[in-house]
């Protein structure tokens, strides 16, 4: 994983959000503050907004591969919890639509890497793969 504390260890994994101990408000990721309690978030949601990153972000901070292919990124509303920003995976750009049903998966930041760094992503429900971790 690209960082500790983003997803649970279970299979399939869930995102870990932070619940404000006073207000109950949920945020993602869980801030490193005693005021927030880590909570696993629902695996399913609906697409709230999206775009396509068409140029390679500057490095640093971007740690993706030097050879750039555009990727989709959006916000996914997890019902009753929070709207999280995430990569969108296993979907053609012209098939992306606000409101579509999505589920959490993990994908490689660099699909060509031998030991890829994984990042959270959401994919269409129908795109589920047995491994749940394909690129």
């Amino acid at each position: 994983m690209i960082a500790e504390g983003l997803v649970t260890d279970e299979q399939p994994p869930r995102l870990i959000g932070g619940r404000d101990r006073e207000s109950g408000r949920i945020v993602f990721p869980c801030p490193p503050s005693p005021g927030f309690e880590p909570v696993p978030l629902g695996r399913h949601g609906r697409l709230w907004s999206w775009t396509v990153q068409r140029y390679r972000p500057k490095s640093p901070p971007y740690a993706g591969p030097a050879a750039f292919e555009p990727w989709a990124v959006g916000y996914v509303e997890l019902p009753g919890e929070v709207i999280v920003e995430s990569r969108l995976a296993h979907v053609a750009f012209d098939a992306i639509a606000i409101g579509m049903e999505l589920e959490l998966t993990l994908i490689a930041l660099d699909p060509a890497a031998t030991e890829p760094v994984l990042i959270p992503a959401f994919q269409p429900l129908a795109a589920s793969q047995p491994e749940g971790a394909g690129a």
């Binding site: 775009t51 990153q53 901070p61 971007y62 993706g64 990124v73 916000y75 920003e85 990042i119």
Partner: peptide, 19 residues
């Protein structure tokens, strides 16, 4: 957190497009 930039999300144009 650092991973947010490593994943490619520290991009103003990306945010404005989402918005």
């Amino acid at each position: 957190p650092e991973w947010y930039g490593e994943a490619g999300y520290m991009i103003t144009t990306q945010f404005f497009a989402n918005k």
